[in-house]
Design a protein around this nucleic acid. Structure first.
Lengths: 225, 225
DNA sequence: ACCGTTAAGTTAACGGCGTTAACCCAGCCA
DNA sequence: TGGCTGGGTTAACGCCGTTAACTTAACGGT
């Protein structure tokens, strides 16, 4: 309980206090640790008081998620600032920032991209220049600088985003580290290491640098297996 | 209610009947439409009867998920059968089957790869030869046939899986179609169309077929933009 | 033929959840 | 001074997962 007034009445349950409590609770105990009652208790107020600020629980978590996307965008902005415009490194850094945010704020991220939301968020949930826009800018710059092939930038963005997001969500939903195929492997386990190992595939594709050797001239190129 | 005996006692709540009811309920109303009580009602039995067959709700949905992965595997198996061993088409078909399953069984898929499970499933949840193993086989075959560069096959599988899974989960969590960046675009909206549009990027990478043209010789290669 | 065990149900209840309804009261403005 | 309003309260409803205690039908062994 926070400081109460002489009678049993509590104060200080501002909208932001509620949002902060909800955010912290989410980070600490995950989505199912966030109930109206626990949030209220942390703020020092009765559960129903929350309904003065938010229509219902859905709106509360939607607002929390919104704040999450904002912080997410900041991670990415920082990453971009650290690399020169038009460089491939900058594009890669955006991906790494994506991973970093997700891993440092797991409970958070799980909710941001939960598949359970009744109706999915449009990307305008994140602020205008948000993650998508930033990555897109990095991609357009790289294309203009000639460090990346020129195709529809939105297609390119979806490609990179899908790859990164997929890697992340797979590692969060499945414990690939302890799957037999991976145990015996030199392939590294952490999402970040995998992401970096993707580098050559992303740059040169599954066919390889010079296109794949046909079966006939295989031994010419690599000496056979 | 199913056929009851003379007294108020119900029968016929076999384990599989419960699993089927849970599966159907999940497909019809999503995860939050699946409660012990609703499942029980559909089977025609009291809620607590379920505890004779399953330890708790978690185990029930885990079993449902298991069955889901099995069906998932069948989709992929079918796709592989329709294309020759070692072909890139076969690998692509696996990805398309992945999309197809997910889109035809959305509520299902949302739970299979929910980020909310207390502890994530190991891949052994799916039967031995399951999705991962099948894709891996297709990849190994393609490498041996020379239609794909030779690298660690598990890395390649994670790459392809991440890409496909990410595309899917992003489209399920965010309504990219109605995001301003996409509205004005010729880029198609459905996951399947996007997946197909990824083709060149997957094969040749973000650098392009012959590596990207440096700014200097750009016009030599493509005649400028 | 009986008894004990077990499998498959039942009802009642507990505590937690989101949410609603009804009420309370300090502070402000006319 | 009086009424409105914003921010709080308690009580209650119906749903949830789960537990406890009970009932009954069927079966196997002596």
């Amino acid at each position: 309980m926070t400081a109460n007034e002489p009678n049993g009445r509590a104060t200080g349950a501002s909208e932001v206090a509620i949002l902060e409590a909800a955010r912290d609770l989410l980070a600490e105990k995950g989505l199912q640790g966030l109930s109206m009652r626990t949030v209220a208790q942390r703020v020092g107020v009765s559960a129903t008081a929350i309904y003065h600020y938010f229509e219902n629980k859905d709106e509360l978590v939607r607002r929390v998620v919104q704040g999450g996307f904002r912080r997410f965008g900041e991670y990415i902005e920082d990453a971009m600032r650290r690399h020169p415009r038009g460089s491939l490194e900058r594009v890669r850094a955006v991906g790494e920032a994506y991973l970093q945010f997700a891993l440092e704020n797991q409970a958070y991220f799980r909710v941001l991209f939960s598949l359970q939301h009744p109706d999915p968020h449009t990307l305008e949930d994140l602020p205008e220049g948000g993650g998508y826009g930033l990555l897109r800018q990095a991609v357009v710059d790289a294309m203009q600088a000639g460090t990346m092939r020129e195709i529809d930038p939105d297609l390119m963005v979806m490609f990179l985003w899908s790859l990164t997001h997929g890697l992340l969500t797979i590692s969060m939903a499945c414990r690939i580290e302890q799957c037999p195929e991976f145990e015996r492997e030199a392939v590294s386990h952490t999402p970040l290491e995998l992401f970096q190992a993707f580098g050559p595939l992303v740059r040169e594709g599954v066919l390889g640098p010079a296109g794949v050797a046909s079966a006939a001239d295989e031994q010419i190129v690599s000496g056979g297996e």
